[in-house]
């Protein structure tokens, strides 16, 4: 009786089905990925050849740096746009606030692919923006606004902005409004108050927001594929073309590992920053 009882109250025992499931569907494929990345199909032995091949490939190194660059840009853009939006949301009256929140979250209900196509409609050479500029006589030739890095940054920023805003709002709405008033009464104008009081108070939200946005940006696939096109490969699209276009599964696995390590590295940086940044909050 006693052992039966402890079995059912034991946390590990109770969560074992979930553990097994996660182990099977997550851990096994990762291990398999590892195995194939270090495996050469030609010599049938373990090797680092897949990685050295990536280092020698100009396209792969370009994709590596482009992924980092684009993800950092997207993070910066969402921070810069996220603060005003979050502040506006918190300043609005309660009815306006729920309306704005709905508007903010609404795009998340639309498929990523649909939204990328939406940007194509706007930005393509025969798209809305170019037609408008042409008709206004501001430009004489359509601008190439798609199939480049800028297009990917625009698309991903729009995609990921809600995550940043929600993270900032969650932190900022817990901040005592009298902190801001205290700063104003001590002679700091609203802009100084924003940088000296509101930004420091929002650091926890900023950190979780940047982590979310960066990791989602660097692993995004549909947006870089559709808005970046073939000439601006990123690591995720590179995996796809290795796996399904040239059928170099070992190289695809190697890129996958690099991507995972890269994401892990940035998570560690973020955790470290969080530790340092949150120290003064106790």
């Amino acid at each position: 009786m006693a052992s039966e009882r402890s079995f059912f109250t034991n946390g590990y025992a109770l969560s074992s089905p979930a553990f097994t499931l996660v182990g099977l569907i997550a851990l096994v494929p990762v291990l398999q990925l590892f195995a194939s990345a270090f495996w050469s199909f030609t010599t049938e032995s373990y090797t680092l050849a897949n990685f050295t091949a990536l280092l020698d490939s100009k396209m792969a190194t370009q994709a590596f740096w482009r992924s980092i660059r684009v993800s950092l840009c997207v993070t910066v853009v969402t921070v810069l746009l996220g603060y005003p939006l979050a502040m506006g949301l918190l300043r609005a009256g309660s009815r306006m606030q729920s309306l704005l929140l709905t508007l903010l979250v609404f795009p998340l209900m639309v498929s990523v692919v649909v939204r990328a196509y939406g940007w194509l409609v706007v930005l393509s050479p025969s798209g809305v923006l170019n037609k408008l500029l042409l008709n206004l006589g501001i430009i004489s030739e359509p601008l190439s606004l798609i199939h480049n890095e800028a297009a990917v940054i625009i698309g991903e920023s729009q995609l990921l902005l809600p995550y940043m805003v929600l993270a900032l709002v969650a932190t900022l709405q817990k901040v005592d409004p009298s902190l801001e008033e205290a700063s104003l009464s001590l002679g700091a104008n609203p802009l100084t108050t924003f940088f000296r009081v509101i930004v420091p108070m929002s650091i926890p939200g900023l950190l979780s927001g940047t982590l979310m946005v960066f990791s989602l940006a660097i692993t995004a696939f549909a947006t870089p594929l559709l808005l970046g096109g073939g000439r601006t490969p990123m690591m995720t699209t590179l995996v796809y073309s290795f796996a399904f276009t040239t059928f170099e599964w070992d190289k695809a696995a190697a890129v996958g590992i690099v991507l995972a390590v890269l994401a892990l590295f940035f998570v560690c940086v973020q955790r470290w920053a969080a530790k340092v940044g949150l120290k003064s909050f106790g």
Binding site: A182, V197, M201
Partner: peptide
């Protein structure tokens, strides 16, 4: 305005 205010919650800057 150069007016000092002490708030009910003190409103000290925690950081």
């Amino acid at each position: 305005r150069n007016i000092g205010v002490v708030f009910q919650s003190y409103a000290l800057f925690p950081f």
